[in-house]
Design a protein around this nucleic acid. Sequence first.
DNA 1: CTCAGCCAACTTTTT
DNA 2: GTTGGCTGAG
Length: 578
Amino acid sequence: MKEYKLKSYNVKKDIDYKINYDGELNAAQLEAVKTKEGPVLVIAGAGTGKTKTLVYRAARLVEEGANPENILLLTFTRKAALNMLKRASMILDERCGKISGGTFHSFANIMLRKYAKLVGFNENFTILDKSDAESVIGIIRAKLGYNKTEKRFPLKHTIGEVISKSINKNTLVEFVLNSEYPHFIDSLDGIKVIQMEYQKYKKEKMLMDYDDLLLYFELLLKGNEEIRKRISGFYKYIMIDEYQDTNKIQANLAYLLASEHKNIMVVGDDSQSIYSFRGANFKNIMDFPKQYPECKIITLEQNYRSTQPILDLTNALIENAREKYSKKLFTKKEGDLKPVYVETDDPNMQSKFVVQRILEIREEGIPLNKIAILFRNAWHSNDLEIELAAANINFTKYGGIKFTEASHIKDIMSYLKVSHNPMDSISWFRILQLIDGIGEKTAEFITGEIAENNKGINFLKDLVYQGTEIGGINISQYKKRDPDSKLISQPATGKINYQKKYYKDLYKLYVMLGDISAKNLSPYELINIVFNYYKPIFENKYDDFNRRAKDVESLLLISQRYKKLSAFLSDMTIEGTD
DNA sequence: CTCAGCCAACTTTTT
DNA sequence: GTTGGCTGAG
C-alpha cells in the first residue's frame, strides 16, 4: 500500500458549499449528513431515503476537504456502491468517484492481495465460489470414504452449508447440526474431519472461499498491530450500509477498521434483516450503541415510497418485535388504498386469483409491464406460469442461475484461473475433464501430479512425450524417472496405460496454456485465445451452444473493462454480474 | 478399472 | 440445472 500523508482535517470556516443540503434533505437526514466525526447509528426505515443520505454525506465529506480515498463506503453489493458514488459525483464532482467502496468481501480481497504473505498465502490466491468450494468438499468426502458409508452421509452441498454456517454464525458445528440438521447428528465427527481437511487443502492450493476472505482479513488485522493501524489510519471515514445484514465477523471487521478514529457511520434497519440464513445477525445493529456508548443515534422516519395505509400495516407489524429501535413511519404521500390480504385453499386457486386480478387491472387500463408478482423461489411460480399462459397473458420471468455460475462460463474462467494460480486444483480438475476420454480418475491423477510436485503445466508435456515416445509405461518405469513422486503407488492395478487417445488433446491444452501465460495480454485477449481452443469442446458439450454463445459475448464485453487478469478473476467470483 | 450416458430426485435467498 | 446412482462398453 502506498504511504499517504493524511491531510489534517481542519474545516475552514469559509467553505463555500456548492450543494444545497438544507433544501434537499429533511431534518433527520440533514443531521446525519452534517455529522462528520464519531460513531453514528442511522436507523433508516424502509423507503426513508437511506441511500440519498449516504450519498449526501459522502459528498459533504469530500466538499469539506476529506481526501476521497480516505473514505470507505461498504455496501451490500458492489453495484450499490458504484451507484452511490455516481450519484455523489453528480451532485458534487468527479472527486467522489475516487471514494473507496465495495462489499466486505471485495474490500477484504483487495487488502489480502497486498498482505497475503502475512496470513500464509501468496498474492495470487484463487477465490472459490460456492460450487467450487463444494467441489473441494466433494473430493475430500470421496477420498475419506464418506460416499460409501452405510448410513447416508450428508451431500457435499449440505456439508458446505453446515461448515459455512458455523463460521458465519460464530457457533460450533454441533449447534448448526442440532438446530437445522438433527437427522445428521451422527455425521458430526465426519463433518469435523472433512472441515479440517478442507481447510488444509485450501491452504496448500492457495484457495480461499468466501468465508476465508473475511476470516483471513480479520486475522490480518488482529494479528498485525502495525498493519491494522496503517489501514485504519488510512480509511479515516467509514460508512456501512445495510448494517442489519452484517454477521459477527463483519461487525468485528468494522470495529477493527474504525479502531484508530471511531469515525464510523452505520446505516440500517433492524426491522429489515433478511440474511439470517447466512449468519446475518440484527443484534449487531442493536449492540452498536454498546460498542460505542458515545454514539449518536439518528432515526429516519419519513417515508417517500408508500402511502399511509401501507405504512400503518408495517408499523403495526414492527410494533410486535420484541427487540427494536422504535420508530413510526409516516408519509406525506396521498392515497387511501389499503393492502389486501387474501387466503386461498390451494396454490392453484391462488394462481387463478392472481390471473383474475391481472385481467381486471388490465381492464382498468394499466399496462402489463406495470404489474409485478413477487415470489420466493423460481419454482413457486410454476403453477402460476401455466395459468398465465392459459389466459394468454405475456410475462417476463426474472431470476434463475447467475451468469458467473453457468457451467460454460465456469469452464472458460477455469482456464484463466489455472494460468493465474497453477496450484488451483479445482480448476485443473474441471478443464481436464473437458477432454474426451478423461474422467474423474484420470483428472485426479494429473491434477495431483501437477500440484503435489509443483510441476505446473510442464507435467502435461512430460506426460504426453512419455506417452508418444515410450507408449504404455508401467508404474515402476515411471518411478525410475521420478523417484520422489508420491502418487505412483496409488492405482490398484499398478499399471496405467499412458498411451491414450487423449494425448493429442492434452498436448493442445498444453500449447494453449503456454500461449495464455505470455506476459502483457489483457483479459480480453486471453479469453479470445481460450475460446479459440474451447470452442470445439463447447459446441460438442452443449446442445444449446448458440444460446450460450451469447454469454461468451457478454463475458468478452465485461473483460474489456479490465487490464489485469487478477482483478477480472476476483470480480467475476466475488461480485458476479447481472 | 474407467468413462459416458441415462434416469430420478431436488431446487430460497448471497458473498 | 445439478447431483448421485446405475449400467454397459472399452
